[in-house]
Design a protein around this nucleic acid. Structure first.
Lengths: 154, 154
DNA sequence: ATTTATGCAAATCGTTTGCAAACCT
DNA sequence: AGGTTTGCAAACGATTTGCATAAAT
């Protein structure tokens, strides 16, 4: 692991612990492990994937912790329409804005980004639409549904 | 109801019955009623909303019928992330391409469209992204999450 | 007559919740 | 001690499924 990754990781945990402290919640080992795995995987994952290992915490704790982390803006829930919900680190924690490639065959979800110029153009359009409808926007999604490379190969 | 609406409606039912016949399925009264309500409501609705009236068909039949209609491309399922799934007439049946305004407060979903030029630009970008990832696209979604006018007023 | 659709009740399965024990400060 | 988090088991709720009856061809 490069030195910069290490600093990033420290900063991540620091940010998370501050946000939890704000709502009188503790940054326990289980929560730290969840955040660590989310950071390492760097794509939206299901809870089974997240705790699936040997020493995982209980499913119920994972659900509870991810809810808490979602409330404080550390984790984002991805609406992929599949059986299991998927979670990833929130955009304002990792500092990027991205979209999703959702494989309808295996359920896997990957992130992608578009050029800033395109993103600004899309957002401009969306702001106009929202204004016309008296709608207050909190976020938007631009997702691709289809078949991923692995599933096409088969 | 204007004469053109009537013709549209006849064509709709005709199209649906053909698609069902292709897979040896019958266009029963219950299915016709579902399609009619979907056409009238013209926005993604939940199954309770759809059968909620007095003479509705059984929930299980509604689920089964909507699955069949989805398989033949008459109905589309909307991934809104809320408790109930939502359904609407598929784009290639109604002949338009649209996106969704999803209210996180009341769950209601509205359709909106963007200018053809913007849509083409977005699709061009998405095609490029998909190609880079070896991803075969079947559809895309561009949805706005936030608070609708009614819920903001409260 | 034969196949498909329906309604009802029961089963499924991801997610949530109650509660007592373990944990942190 | 005083509050929070955890694990386990039970509860929930949307969706699915089995099966016998009704409807369509």
């Amino acid at each position: 692991m490069a030195a910069s990754d290490l600093r990033d990781s420290e900063r991540l945990h620091h940010d998370v612990s501050l946000r939890l402290r704000d709502v009188d919640q503790r940054y326990t080992a289980g929560r730290r492990r969840l955040v660590e795995r989310l950071a390492k995987l760097a794509r939206p994952v299901t809870i089974p994937e997240l705790v699936g290992g040997a020493t995982g915490l209980a499913l119920s704790s994972a659900y509870r912790n991810l809810s808490v982390l979602e409330e404080v803006g550390v984790v984002a829930r991805v609406h992929s329409g599949a059986e299991h919900a998927r979670f990833e680190l929130a955009e304002d924690i990792v500092g990027d804005h991205h979209h999703h490639l959702i494989c309808e065959s295996c359920g896997r979800v990957e992130d992608f980004t578009v050029a800033a110029k395109v993103e600004r153009s899309i957002e401009g359009t969306l702001d106009r639409v929202a204004a016309e409808h008296g709608f207050v926007v909190t976020s938007h999604s631009l997702d691709l549904f289809g078949t991923c490379e692995d599933c096409t190969a088969t």
